[in-house]
Computed example of a mutant assay.
Amino acid sequence: MTFVVLLITLAISFITDIKSRKIFNIVTFPSMFIGIIFNTITFGWEGLFFSILGLLTGFGLLVIPYALGGIAAGDVKLLMAIGALQGSSFVFGSFLYITIIGGVIALVLLIMQGELRNTIKRIFTTAQLKTLNGLNKNELHHAFPYGVAIVLGTICYTGVIYF
């Protein structure tokens, strides 16, 4: 049951993030509630703890990138929904794939736009200054809908776990 809800949530989020660069609350919140309710009914208090811990793990993994303005709230809520449905170890395992896929997508986009060298220079300059003040949000024109990486990473991890 939760696996089917996960796949539906991922499919809808993938499409909406590509089309409108948004992951809608009408998709993520019901997924969170379904995960919590289903796991609680099926496994009792352990199921409730399983879902809440997964939800909090999803939140914890993306709260800093969100606070720094690197991703949107919809991305955080999508990872929270994945956690509520499948638990903390699943969301953490997915996150490893998500970060790799997100990095590859970012690298490909920078190469295609001819901006890899400038971006690396900016990163090293900022690192030497040991402050984020050197980064201007207006320069982040290489941003991409990170929900795509979340969906692809979760599907890759699902393949490792279930198949």
Rank of each mutant, 00 (worst) to 15 (best):
L152C: 13
V27Y: 13
I111F: 11
F24Y: 15
S31R: 10
K137W: 14
V151R: 08
F124K: 12
L55R: 10
V108S: 14
F163Y: 03
L109N: 09
K137Q: 14
A73C: 06
R21M: 04
F59V: 12
L152W: 06
E115C: 04
V27I: 15
L79Q: 13
L109H: 05
T131A: 11
V27Q: 05
A149G: 08
I120G: 05
L109Y: 08
G60T: 13
T2M: 01
V76H: 10
F14K: 05
D75H: 06
F95H: 03
F49S: 04
F49C: 04
L55M: 13
N39Y: 00
G87C: 00
I41T: 02
P65W: 03
F59E: 01
T42L: 05
L61Q: 06
T42C: 02
K77V: 01
I8Y: 08
G87Y: 14
Q113Y: 11
L132S: 13
L10P: 13
T99E: 05
I52R: 01
G134L: 02
L79M: 09
G102V: 07
L53Q: 11
K22N: 13
K121E: 13
G159V: 08
A67F: 15
L6Y: 08
N25S: 04
S51I: 06
G58K: 10
P30W: 00
T42K: 04
S13W: 10
G47N: 00
N118H: 08
L68D: 07
G58T: 09
K19C: 01
T131M: 00
R117P: 01
L62W: 07
N39L: 04
V148L: 07
S20E: 12
I15M: 10
A11E: 00
W45Y: 14
I98N: 14
I161T: 03
L6D: 09
L135E: 10
I150D: 06
V104I: 15
V148P: 14
I23E: 05
T57M: 12
T119E: 15
C156M: 12
L53F: 09
F92I: 06
G44R: 06
A11Q: 02
F163H: 03
M112I: 02
P145T: 10
F163M: 05
I36M: 09
G103P: 15
K22Y: 07
L135S: 02
G153E: 11
H141F: 12
M112K: 13
I26K: 15
V151D: 07
F3T: 04
I150G: 09
A81M: 02
I120C: 12
Y162E: 04
G47E: 00
I111P: 09
V108M: 08
A106E: 07
L107S: 15
S51H: 07
Y66D: 01
I26N: 09
F38P: 00
N39R: 03
W45Q: 13
F43N: 01
F50L: 02
T125A: 12
L140Y: 13
H141T: 13
P145S: 14
G87D: 01
I37F: 12
M1R: 05
N118Q: 06
L78F: 03
I100V: 04
K130Q: 15
L68N: 10
F29E: 00
G102T: 04
Q128K: 15
V27H: 14
L6T: 10
G44L: 06
Y162N: 07
S51F: 12
I111A: 15
K137E: 12
L56A: 14
S94A: 06
V151W: 10
G74Y: 04
L85S: 09
L79G: 05
G159W: 05
D75C: 08
